[in-house]
Design a protein around this nucleic acid. Structure first.
Lengths: 278, 278
DNA sequence: CCATAAAACCACAAAATGTCACACGAGCGT
DNA sequence: ACGCTCGTGTGACATTTTGTGGTTTTATGG
C-alpha cells in the first residue's frame, strides 16, 4: 500500500549539499528506475528548480535520461547501441532485406548473422516455406519464432549485449556444422583495397571462421558502408558471391566487384504500399 | 472510483508521468493481449483521451495495434501456444516471479529454464547487479539483453517453436558446463505420488539432465499445477530445495514437502508500492 | 439500408512542467 | 572589507501535457 508520504523515507537529513544530493538521486534511481521531480524535491526539501538543475548535470554525463515530469534510467530499449544502429538507415536496410529475399528459394538452408540488415531480410522471408535458418542472433531468432514452416537453429554461448548475439567458439563450432545454401552477412564497412571490414573483433572472427564452410556468401550493406573505415578484415571481394545494397556503389567498387566476379544487386526503393513499420 | 477487483490493480502510484505510463501500457499488453481504453483510463486515473494519445504514440512506433475500443499486440491473431500459456495465470506467475527473486543475491549464477513463470522471475531480477544468467530460452535471453550488469549465456541448438527454447543435446551439454548457485525450473504439473512432471518429453529430458549438476533446485509453479496430470517425470520432491507458488498447496503436498525437507514459499499478492513500470 | 450508441478525433482551454533571468546569501581568497 | 564564485530560491514566461466539449467516424442491431 502507498503511504501518503513520500515513498523514499531513508534519512534525508536537514541539510543536503548538491554533490551528495546528486549521488543520492543516482542511488535512488538504481532502486526505482524512474522518479518524479516533485517527489525528489519533497524528499530533499528543496525547490523543484534545484532538482532540475541536478538532473541537467546528470543528463550531461549521460547517466540518466530526463523525461517530462521526472528522470529515468537510460533504459536499454532506447539507448542501447543495437537499437541505435537499428534506426540508422532503417529504410535502406528494409529495401535491402527485401531485395536479398529474392535470392532465397523455398527449401533452402540459410546461415544468417547478427547484423541489423540481416534482421530485415529475415522479416522479408516471413512467407517463404520450408526454410532452415541457422543464426547466432537473438533478434533474428525472435523474428523466426512462430513460423511453423521454418526450422530454426540457434547458436549459443556468451551473449554480446551490444550485438545481441553469440560470437564465441561454441557459436562458431555450432554454425560450422551446417552446410548452408546461402551464408548471409551484414558488413560494417567496405574498402576498395581491403574488402569487407567490421568493427567488433569477435564478430569478425565468427564470420571469418564461417567463410570456410560457406557454399555461397551474400553480403548485405547499405550505401553508407562504402569507403567507411573498419578495424578488422573479414573477407575479400573474391570470397563473396553477391552484394546487396540500396544504391549503385562508387566506381572503384564496381570495377573491383567485376574483377572478382561478385554480383552487385541494387534494391529498388520500397513501393509505398508495402512499407511495414518496425 | 476503481472497481474493487480490477485485474489491473497493481501499482498506479501517486502520480504517473507520461513516459512511465506508456511503458506501463506496453508491459501490461504482454500479460493481457488486449486492453480497453476505459480500463486503462481507470487504471491510471486519467481521461480516456490521454490514453488514446499514448496509444497513438505507441502505434506510430509500430509496437502495438490500435483497435476500436482499445489496443492489442500486433501478433495477437495467431496466438502461438507459448503466448497462450504466457497469459494463463499471468498475475499469479508475476507474483511468483517476484517472490522467487527474493532468493537471489547479487553476484549469483542462475540457470533458468524456458517456462513462462521463469520469465517473470527474470523480469523481477532487472535491478539485481552482477548476475550471471544461463538459459536455454530465447524469451529469457531477450529480457536480459540490455542489462549491462548481468552476463548472459544462451544455450543453442534446434529451437522448439512452442517453447521458444532449445532442449537438444547441445543445450544440455552447454548448460551442464556451469555450476549455478540456483537452478530454476518451471514445472507443468505436480503429483503427490510422482513428484514434478512435465508435458514435453524433450523439455523433461533437458531438466532431468541438469538436476545432476545442480547445487540447489528451485521450482516455480502456480497453484493450478497441483494435482494436474503430466506425461513425463522430471524430479522427486527430494531433489528440490525450494518450491515457490502463489497459494498454499493442498494438504497432501504440504506433508510430502515436509517429509523431504523441501521449503514451500507462498507469494504474497502484489503490493501496490513495488510494481514499478519500466 | 438506416438508426443509434459507442468510440475516435479535433480544437481549444486549463493545468502542469520546464526554462530562463535575476537576486540573495554563504564561503573564500586577495 | 571587498569582490568573486557558487549554490539556491523566486517569479515571469515558454512549452508540454491533459481535460473537455464538440463533431465525425465506426460498430452493431433492427
Amino acid at each position: 500500500m502507498q503511504t501518503p508520504f513520500s515513498p523514499l523515507d531513508d534519512a534525508p537529513g536537514p541539510r543536503v549539499i548538491q554533490s551528495s544530493r546528486i549521488a543520492a538521486i543516482l542511488k535512488l534511481l538504481e532502486a526505482r528506475s524512474s522518479l518524479s521531480i516533485a517527489e525528489l524535491a519533497a524528499r530533499f526539501d528543496c525547490s523543484e528548480e534545484t532538482i532540475r538543475r541536478d538532473i541537467r548535470q546528470l543528463e550531461q554525463t549521460g547517466r540518466v535520461l530526463k523525461v517530462h515530469g521526472g528522470v529515468r534510467m537510460p533504459d536499454a530499449d532506447f539507448e542501447a547501441p543495437y537499437r541505435l544502429r537499428f534506426r540508422e538507415q532503417a529504410d535502406a536496410k528494409q529495401q535491402i532485406g527485401r531485395a536479398a529475399a529474392e535470392l532465397v528459394e523455398p527449401g533452402m538452408t540459410l546461415l544468417i548473422d547478427s547484423g541489423t540488415t540481416s534482421f530485415w531480410l529475415v522479416r522479408a522471408l516471413a512467407r517463404v516455406p520450408d526454410l532452415t535458418i541457422v543464426t547466432n542472433s537473438i533478434e533474428v531468432a525472435s523474428e523466426v519464432l512462430g513460423r511453423p514452416k521454418q526450422r530454426l537453429f540457434l547458436a549459443g554461448g556468451i551473449i554480446n549485449h551490444d550485438y545481441r548475439a553469440a560470437f564465441g567458439p561454441e557459436a562458431i563450432a555450432y554454425c560450422g556444422g551446417f552446410i548452408p545454401d546461402l551464408t548471409i552477412f551484414s558488413m560494417g564497412a567496405i574498402d576498395v583495397e581491403r574488402g569487407f571490414l567490421d568493427f567488433e573483433p569477435d564478430e569478425a572472427t565468427f564470420k571469418r571462421a564461417l567463410i570456410e564452410s560457406a557454399r555461397r556468401i551474400v553480403v548485405l550493406a547499405d550505401s553508407t558502408k562504402f569507403g567507411r573505415k573498419g578495424t578488422t578484415r573479414v573477407a575479400g571481394f573474391g570470397d563473396v558471391a553477391d552484394l546487396v545494397t540500396d544504391a549503385p556503389p562508387p566506381h572503384p567498387f564496381v570495377t573491383a566487384a567485376a574483377a572478382t566476379g561478385m554480383a552487385v544487386h541494387v534494391a529498388r526503393p520500397a513501393s509505398a504500399a508495402e512499407a511495414q513499420p518496425l
